[in-house]
Design a protein around this nucleic acid. Structure first.
Lengths: 246, 246
DNA sequence: TATCATTTTTGATCTAGATCAAGGAACTTA
DNA sequence: TAAGTTCCTTGATCTAGATCAAAAATGATA
């Protein structure tokens, strides 16, 4: 009786999980969810807390189910490069050979599902297509990385910020700015990260981020409400700038 | 009789393949090589020829078995970011969702094994651990990407070039500069790519590459014979510079 | 509601690295 | 061996973005 209740509760956990549809979990049928649940643990991480540290042995994967997380690397003197902002459904931990190649810190209060490597091994044994799904996930990340290299290596501050704004305007799981509709209504976005985070993500300083936003404002490309709310007035022009035209 | 000869010849092809031990092929037993061969085609690409073009539908993977390849992205106005230089044993094509996220061009005459996606699907069906091996390969690439983001986003020209020289001094398949012996004898390396390629890899200009090499020469960190031969006189100092100290 | 702390914006100045412009080397071709 | 080509180095100058320094806005605390 008790186990049955638990099992139901546990299935609920996945069934209602906001990450379910986008995450790797979407290759597991509903009726097999208990197996998934058995191999995972729900974890809460408070805003500002790091839960993966670069260089430590990688024994776990995470599926982000609620909140946002920043992934980053540090140089010995404190210079920081943010590799990305993970959101609901994202799979964390692929960028690791024996130890993690990055650190992860919660931007707000966060919920994750933690899987041990051995747990994932058991799951891939049981659900062979999960392994393929993981490869897909890795491929997706690699394509994102390619674009990021171009951004950091070859784009101007203006182009970087435009790219960032466009990225932020895209729905989760759609990481391809080019493949988007050309409709021209303003897009409201909420920046959930600080200017410092934006700067460290784009490889620039907070001052340049601030100034460039100022320029966009003057050019009527955006309006800013408060600090975190931005409206993209001319998404297609921003997209052009992001791609190196404009 | 003929088929038997072919089969032998074909097995030879893999058995003596310089990429065999490092590439994904190393998860296939010798006696199963014919299956691998049946799904692959040997391809030759002449120096300077591109064989993967960013944005085109991704239907194939490649294993590089001889020569070197540059992987890159272009902006519409011609700015170029080289994501990496592939070498013997490297697996190409993971950074693709439906279409390739990068272009690939032979730096010298090159030999590759081409696999169709469907061929790889058949192989992973037959050899389930191959799928895991592909994921590993992707993970390895992702860790390299992390380091590259730091380089492009946060390192100085000096640090970038030091990183590059150290990278080039590492044996193929060892992509972790930190994990290396501290021995201090000079290391001779051969740069197989042009200054332009180096610049586009490091996110700088050829002039800065040239000047920074000049600085390293003056500081007795390196000597240069001709254009392509470089001797690292003080690898550990270069390593320190690469990591952001020095 | 006032005070303090933090974050962001704005301004003034500086500089690493880009750009522009010649020279040199090194490779090709005849 | 000479004459192009192409690639690399070196020098002079410029500039995008960094750094330094306040002011303004936002948010937290009491």
């Amino acid at each position: 009786m008790v186990t049955s209740i638990t099992s139901d509760a546990v299935r609920e956990r996945c069934a209602h999980c906001p990450g379910r549809s986008h995450s790797i979990c979407n290759v597991i049928d509903d009726d097999e969810l208990p197996i998934l649940v058995a191999e995972s643990a729900r974890v809460q991480v408070a805003k500002g807390r790091a839960f993966i540290e670069e260089g430590t042995p990688a024994h776990e994967f995470y599926v982000l189910t609620e909140g946002r997380v920043k992934l980053f690397n540090l140089l010995p003197d404190g210079r920081r490069q943010i590799a990305g902002f993970a959101e609901c459904g994202d799979f964390l931990g692929l960028a690791a050979v024996d130890s993690y190649a990055f650190s992860a810190e919660a931007i707000c209060d966060v919920t994750l599902c933690r899987f041990s490597h051995s747990g994932i091994d058991r799951l891939t044994q049981r659900f062979p297509h999960l392994e393929h799904r993981l490869r897909d996930e890795a491929s997706r990340e690699l394509t994102i990385m390619q674009r990021r290299l171009v951004l950091l290596g070859r784009k101007t501050a203006r182009e970087r910020l435009a790219t960032f704004l466009i990225e932020q305007s895209l729905p989760p799981c759609c990481a391809a700015p080019d493949l988007l509709e050309k409709e021209e209504k303003p897009i409201k976005i909420k920046l959930l990260m600080s200017r410092t985070d934006i700067a460290d993500y784009l490889g620039m300083t907070i001052e340049t981020v601030s100034r460039t936003l100022g320029v966009f404002k003057k050019e009527k490309l955006i309006t800013v409400q408060g600090v975190t709310a931005v409206t993209l007035l001319a998404p297609h022009r921003l997209r052009a700038i992001a791609e190196g035209n404009g």
